[in-house]
Structures are given as structure tokens and as C-alpha cells.
Design a protein around this nucleic acid. Structure first.
Length: 589
RNA sequence: GCGCUGGUAGCUCAAUGGAUAGAGCGUCGGCCUCCGGAGCCGAAGGUUGGAGGUUCGAAUCCUCUCCGGCGCGCCA
């Protein structure tokens, strides 16, 4: 099925072409003036400008052959040359029924599916996920869901940060704590491997910040860490064994969070997985003259004449001989080009790393590893506390994602109990629902903001069951589920949708906007368009709900059946739309 | 210093160069013999940070400027 905006655009397109104008000018959108029409087209204004004629006259000619179209009840030209289009009742009803029958709720796949690689979350070894990871995770997951829904072939990768200096730091930190471990022996070999990990996640969490802080003041310590890093990368067996331990311990802890958030990755590749490619990568770049020595290191120059800013070179090999952040990113591109062959790479990473990605993408182009045009950095702003500053605990520490999820879940449970809802649920179900509601609060709050803006985290506001929140949207879904459940119990069936009330018309038009919202969200790589749509839909439903009270008691079977079918269509779209944001609707709450 | 971002209602945020800039919260006023009222309807509240410019038309594009956040070679 095709949404109204597209149908109308397709109708007007040939008319613009006939006038010798670009059919793109025919783009039709929802009207800003519902009193004048359901949809509008502004193309006559720009078109008349090109032709040097009166826009109203042009608009009139464009509309001539549209008269008598079954789709339209009325067409008119207003103001300087706005084209207003009003839909016929028949068209509205027909579209409503098509939407209700469509399991995809009107969502159409893209004409040209792409292989899309989504790199997001980027959790690190030894560092529990904190609030900073929330946005990357939630936005990245939503983008992968949206891309899949549109028919793209998506591969998602957590891109585990398990390489580089942080591992070197952990190694020397552990060496100081437990020098007796076999992994530090120069003659270590695999037969000495001990299955039991030498550290717990708590140990890593304690060691890393301490070592990181010490490195900043203690130059000798930093050099030791860098040396350990270089040795690890060169394949020192004992260090590789430690790396394996760190990796396993960290991944186990991280998966707990991803499971709670209902987030899935196709790949859980780490930076260490591309280490085998680095030597060849560096050698080729050096031979091709792309990589050049500079201040003792090996770099790829990426500055360009047209740059307004100075773009520093990408550091390929440090003076210590170790691969850097950008190096592993380049190697990762090589591996992805070989194994996934993406048409599009999306890197969902904090906006503060924009410069880094500029460097990597240019270097990838320069070294012939990929095409810059296919590499995209999807940046995002930070999550701040109610004081407007980056979100911190009272003592000034970083809040762990796990604790954040826990407090959302607990608050959701409190709200449910406060309102006396969910009483019929078993304690286990209630806990499960509370987690669903809590994560919905967290995700919707994040995804309803445009990704590049910073936003203020306010637990009370986000977990509120009223207003523009995840729980409110779930609640609307729960209401419909309850209605449909009762209808089924009473043996009340559906019937073709009739659009009788203005609230029903508004609801059908809202439903019809889903397809456009999802496509726009992917084009802009901005899930908030979906969030916005779902909220608009929920509001339209609520208005309809009040305008057509007691559907179950409606005596007219056709009217009752129509409203039940319309309600079910709403539920389908709410579930799909919220699903694109990674939010589930419980049966009861 | 250079660059990237953001600045919209009291607060938190939307708005693919289009008509009268919209929501949520808060405030004020309505609607409960209600399928889940955690809802709905209405009102007040704006020189879109400021100044120029482009355009038939600017929150949106350009220039300058003020304020906040951030980034600028051996961390990731």
C-alpha cells in the first residue's frame, strides 16, 4: 500500500513535468492549515518562479486534470499559490481498511535495499557501561531496527573496546598486584593457562580508574603501560592470555545490561580481532607513500586545502610502535569490507569524536580501503543532570548504566503500585513489567530528543505515566489491548472501518503518516521522528477514545466493528512504532 | 586562537525554505451513571539570543556578534 502523501505526490508529479518543471516540486505533505485541506503542495510557488509567471495561475493549471479524481473531495489554491487538497471520505475509509489489514501498518520497504553496518554501543573492557554509553546504545539500536524495518540488510556490531593502552594499563596494574601469576613470565606458554580468571569485574572496575589516574602523573608508569601494549600487540603469549581473561569477564558483565535493555548485536567483534590485519595495513600504506614518518611516529596526512580548520594527521603507529585508535578503526574497515561489504557504515558514537572520524574516513579513502562517501559518523550530544551539567552521582562520580536501569525499574514499580495497577500480576510478572516500563522511560526520553542536542535527565519526569513519556505510550497500548481482550471475551467481532467522526478521520490520517515518519527517521538517521509520530498517534487515539465512548456497548454492529478494527490498527502501529525504538508494550501495567 | 555543536513559551523539548512556530510539564478553567480519568477539552504564555543579508516567503540558508557545551598527534 502507498500512503496518501506519496499517492498525491505521484498524482501531481506528471502535471509538473507537463509544465516542464521538476516533478520533485510536486512533493505533497500534511497541511499546516487543516481548515483548508488535508494535504498541501507548495511546488507551484517555486515552479512559477522558475517560469516567471503567476503562481496562482500555474497552480490552477496543475489542478485542472485532477478534478474528478476519486481520491479527492476538493482542491483549491490559496494565498500566494498554495495548493490545498482534501481527501474524499471513500478514500479515507479505503485507506483505513488497507492499514488495518496490513501487518506492516503501511510501512513500505525502500526501493534499493542497502547493506548497512551499524557500529554502536562501543563498550569497553574493564569499564562498566555508564550513562555515556546509554545514548550510543539506544540510538544505535533504534537505527538498526529502523533500517531493518525498511528492508535494508543490517549487520550490527558492538565494536568492543578491548585493545590499546587500556589493556596495557590493566596488565601492569595486575602485575603489581599479583606478580606471581604465570602470565608475566617471559617463558609463559599456553600450558600454564589457568581457567579461573585472575580478576573479577569488580577488580577491573577498581584497577582501571586507579591506573588511568596514575598514568597521568607518573611518566614512567605510562611508558610501562605503553610498552606492555606494544608487546601485547606483537603477540606476547602471557599478555594475550590475560587479554582473553579480561575480555571474558567484561563481556559477561556487559551482556547483563544489554539483555536488560533488550538489545541485540549480530556481531560482538572487538578491536583485538583485527590486530592480524594491522601489520599488512601499515606496510601497504607505507609502501604506497600514504603513511609517512612524523615526529617519530607513522602518520597519514588527511588535511585538505578547502579545510576551514586544521585537521591533524591520523596516527597510524606511535613512536612506541603500537597501533592507535585510528589504526584499529582502519583495520576494522578492511575487515568489514572483506566480510560484510557494506554500502553504508554508520558509526553511532559521541559527537566529541567527530574529528577522529573525519581523520579515519579520509585516511580510509586515501589508503584505498573504502570510500569516504559510504562512511558516516552519527554523533550525539550528552546527557546532562538537572543542573545542566554532565550527569553525575551526588559524589561526582560517573553513574553506572546498571544503576540507572535499576532506579528506572524501581521507580516504575513504585508508580504502578501507587496507581494500584498491575495488582493482578504475579510478583515475577510485576518485576518483569516494571523493567519493561523502566527501560521504556529511559529509551523514550532519549530517543524523543534530536540526537545532536544535549538533554537533561530527569528520572521523575521520564518515569511519569502522564505526558510525553515511554510509560504513557505503553499505557495507551495497554488500554487498547484491554479493549480488544474484552471484545474477544464477549464475542464481538470487527467490521470494515467507517470514518464517521472527525476524530476518526484525524486518527486515520495519523496512522497514514507512519510510513513517512519512519523513512524520514532513517534518511536523517534520527529516531526522534519515529518517537514524535508514535506520540502523535497515541494522542489522536486518546482523543478518539473519548469521542467514541463505550465501544463495547455500541448497539450498531457495523459501527462497533469498525471502531474495534480501527483500534486494533492503532495497536499494531503502536507496537511496530515503539518496537522501532526498542520499546515493548506489556499486556497489563 | 581555530573549528564543531546548541540557543525556540516559566521549565524540558519538537518543527524535510512555506500559510496562524507546535507538544509535554507547570499555571488557570471545564468534563467522571468513565470499554483502564495515569485520560480528554479549553485558556494564558513567543520580537525563535542579537544585528544585517538572500528570498515572493527564514526558527531553518549566508555574514557578523553574544552566551553555553565540546574538540583540536602519540588515550579510546
Amino acid at each position: 500500500m502507498i500512503d496518501f502523501a506519496t499517492q498525491l505526490t505521484n498524482l501531481l508529479g506528471p502535471e509538473f513535468s507537463r509544465e516542464g518543471l521538476d516533478p520533485h516540486l510536486a512533493e505533497v505533505r500534511r497541511s499546516a492549515r487543516p481548515d483548508l485541506g488535508d494535504f498541501q503542495c507548495n511546488g507551484a510557488l517555486a515552479g512559477a518562479k522558475q517560469k516567471g509567471e503567476n503562481p496562482r495561475a500555474l497552480a490552477d493549471r496543475l489542478l485542472e486534470s485532477l478534478r474528478g479524481q476519486a481520491l479527492l473531495r476538493e482542491t483549491s489554491v490559496a494565498g500566494p499559490g498554495f495548493i490545498n487538497l482534501a481527501l474524499s471520505d471513500e478514500a479515507l475509509a479505503a485507506q483505513a481498511n488497507r492499514l488495518a489489514e496490513d501487518a506492516r501498518s503501511g510501512l513500505t520497504p525502500v526501493a534499493q535495499p542497502l547493506r548497512v553496518l551499524v557500529d554502536f554501543a562501543g563498550p569497553n573492557v574493564a569499564k562498566p557501561m555508564h550513562v555515556g554509553h546509554l545514548r550510543a546504545t539506544v540510538i544505535g539500536d533504534s537505527l538498526q531496527r529502523i533500517a531493518r524495518a525498511l528492508g535494508h540488510q543490517v549487520t550490527s556490531d558492538a565494536h568492543f573496546g578491548d585493545w590499546g593502552l587500556q589493556i596495557g594499563l590493566l596488565i601492569i596494574s595486575l602485575e603489581d598486584e599479583q606478580p606471581e601469576l604465570p602470565y608475566f613470565r617471559a617463558d609463559y606458554d599456553e600450558s600454564m593457562f589457568i581457567e579461573e580468571p585472575p580478576v573479577s569485574m569488580e577488580d577491573l572496575d577498581r584497577m582501571y580508574p586507579a591506573a588511568s589516574a596514575r598514568m597521568k602523573e607518573d611518566v614512567a608508569y605510562r611508558d610501562r603501560a605503553r610498552k606492555a601494549t606494544a608487546e601485547l600487540q606483537k603477540g606476547r603469549a602471557g599478555y594475550l592470555a590475560l587479554h582473553k581473561h579480561f575480555w571474558k569477564v567484561s563481556k559477561f558483565a556487559l551482556e547483563r545490561e544489554f539483555t536488560a535493555l533488550n538489545i541485540h548485536f549480530d556481531l560482538w567483534k572487538g578491536e583485538s580481532d583485527v590486530n592480524y590485519l594491522i601489520e599488512e595495513l601499515v606496510e601497504k600504506a607505507r609502501q604506497a607513500g600514504v603513511a609517512v614518518p612524523s615526529e617519530g611516529a607513522l602518520v597519514i596526512e588527511v588535511a585538505r586545502e578547502e579545510d576551514k580548520k586544521t585537521v591533524p594527521p591520523l596516527l597510524l603507529v606511535s613512536s612506541e610502535g603500537s597501533a592507535m585508535y585510528g589504526t584499529t578503526d582502519l583495520a576494522t574497515i578492511v575487515e568489514r569490507e572483506r566480510e560484510v561489504k557494506p554500502d553504508l557504515f554508520l558509526y553511532v558514537v559521541d559527537q566529541r569524536q567527530a574529528l577522529h572520524f573525519t581523520q579515519v574516513f579520509r585516511a580510509a579513502q586515501a589508503a584505498g580501503l573504502s570510500q569516504e562517501s559510504r562512511l558516516e559518523h552519527i554523533g550525539f550530544g550528552t546527557m546532562n543532570g538537572t543542573d545542566g551539567k554532565p550527569f553525575k552521582t551526588r559524589s561526582g562520580g560517573v553513574i553506572k548504566l546498571h544503576d540507572l536501569i535499576t532506579s528506572c525499574r524501581e521507580r516504575a514499580l513504585e508508580k504502578m503500585e501507587e496507581g494500584g495497577y498491575g495488582k493482578e500480576l504475579s510478583p515475577a510478572e510485576r518485576e518483569k513489567t516494571a523493567l519493561m516500563v523502566g527501560t521504556a522511560a529511559l529509551k523514550f526520553a532519549d530517543l524523543s530528543n534530536y540526537r545532536l542536542t544535549d538533554y537533561v535527565f530527569d528520572l521523575d519526569r521520564f518515569t511519569s505515566f502522564e505526558g510525553k513519556t515511554g510509560p504513557y505510550l505503553q499505557f495507551q497500548g495497554v488500554r487498547v489491548k484491554s479493549l480488544l481482550r474484552k471484545a474477544a471475551e464477549q464475542g464481538l467481532g470487527e467490521a470494515p472501518i467507517q470514518v464517521l467522526l472527525p476524530e476518526e478521520k484525524a486518527l486515520v490520517l495519523a496512522l497514514d503518516g507512519f510510513n513517512g515518519a519512519v523513512h524520514l527517521a532513517f534518511e536523517k538517521r534520527a529516531p526522534h521522528f519515529v518517537a514524535e509520530h508514535v506520540f502523535t498517534l497515541a494522542q489522536a487515539f486518546s482523543t478518539f477514545w473519548v469521542a467514541s465512548p463505550k465501544i463495547l456497548e455500541e448497539k450498531d454492529e457495523a459501527v462497533r466493528g469498525s471502531r474495534l478494527r480501527l483500534s486494533r490498527a492503532v495497536l499494531t502501529q503502536l507496537e511496530l512504532g515503539l518496537g522501532l525504538l526498542g520499546i515493548e508494550i506489556p499486556e497489563r501495567m
